[in-house]
Design a protein around this nucleic acid. Sequence first.
DNA 1: ATTATAAGCGAACAAGTGTTCCATGTCAAG
DNA 2: CTTGACATGGAACACTTGTTCGCTTATAAT
Lengths: 234, 234
Amino acid sequence: MKEHKPLSPRQQRILEFVHKYIRENGRPPTIREIGQAADIPSTSVVNYNLGKLEQYGLIERESEVSRGLRLTERAYELLGVAVDAVNGVIDRLAGASRVIRLPLAGDIVASEPIEVGSDGFSTYDELDMIEVTAAMLQPHRGDLYALRVHGDSMIDAMVNDGDIVIMEKVDTARDGEMVAVWLVGDDQTTLKYLFRENDRVRLQPANPTMEPIYVPAEKVKVQGKVLAVLRQLA
Amino acid sequence: MKEHKPLSPRQQRILEFVHKYIRENGRPPTIREIGQAADIPSTSVVNYNLGKLEQYGLIERESEVSRGLRLTERAYELLGVAVDAVNGVIDRLAGASRVIRLPLAGDIVASEPIEVGSDGFSTYDELDMIEVTAAMLQPHRGDLYALRVHGDSMIDAMVNDGDIVIMEKVDTARDGEMVAVWLVGDDQTTLKYLFRENDRVRLQPANPTMEPIYVPAEKVKVQGKVLAVLRQLA
DNA sequence: ATTATAAGCGAACAAGTGTTCCATGTCAAG
DNA sequence: CTTGACATGGAACACTTGTTCGCTTATAAT
């Protein structure tokens, strides 16, 4: 029978961190990552405490292997996650609609109009999908798709190179909505807030320090409505 | 659109091995373990082929991190595990939650430092939670939390009033990472890319048309690392 | 046949990560 | 108060693991 003593606060923190790290990163943490998370400045103290957790049967270690650490069944019981895990899975399966998968339909660059298929994107390779939580998106009628921004030309829209823009496939928009428009004659796609003023259109940049542009209405082709912008930092 | 070519036999073997190894070991394999399993005697050939799989969107890698490798959704689908038994589904869901709930810990404004609870955000109202898909986030060690931007002061970070910033609670950062820093003396929070240069810090705006600022290192307090920016359009 | 590109390979190097050493501090038992 | 067990911490070391270099071979395109 393995020894079973109360865990020290540090050991408790280590165990919880390891569990969370594995769940969120798909691999165990390093000694140094554990030390940082548990406020232990010395790798030897982390090693010592891991030795204790191993002695208590809560973890298994592999010698001289990077990330050679795993939680045992006993650890999961101690952490109370067996039941939580099942409930979590049921919750997630039931709530599957909370994640929406969208086709990453291509790039958006200033010098080209947005090209999308006319049949609901079924022509796209289904493997290029983006997942977003439903809460990120407004109610919408048109099909949704995602575009990745290519280049610095969308800076006035507060959109960076590499950002992902979630679009609704519409060709009309209400005043105040942010849209992707193709400017006929200028041969340019731009993302701006759209306002109709008599027979021209005011296109208002998202950056409040920048001035709007005014374009004859017939030169503005709405190509989609912007619902969200997603930016991952490398 | 990501390149999508038929996988070479070696790439197929690598992918299958990686999947099996993760399932059976609870962590990704090393370059050398992959080489041994796929009969590839050279780590640079393994590295080359992993680069190809990454290019095809089948894996994600992390530079200079041991076992810094993960399979993407696309890879799981290509491997045909989406139609596997419930066990497989639970395995995937338990192993990599697709939705992560984060506390919306408050606002970020230029004139105040970021204030976060010291006890893992348990003090926050559970109704103020943000959900993001796991794919949006880099692997991380610190706790995560979300802040809503208040005001126009983050424009140089390409972040708008009302945007949500996903933060990792760290107080140190590597060069090139985007961080929230409190500038002592200036009484200002700013979001910028951080680079150390001798005894001062270069803070580089996200907007490529803007110039960096240089600050003595002791006046820079890192308050968190920016992992993602989410923007909902009204 | 030639050329360009893709893929392969061994070796060295760089960086990450686990282990060990040694000294010090804390605490409980006697 | 002393002693022994336990825990801590910094530093160095040993080893693991990822990346790069320079070259060769294979394959596809012309």
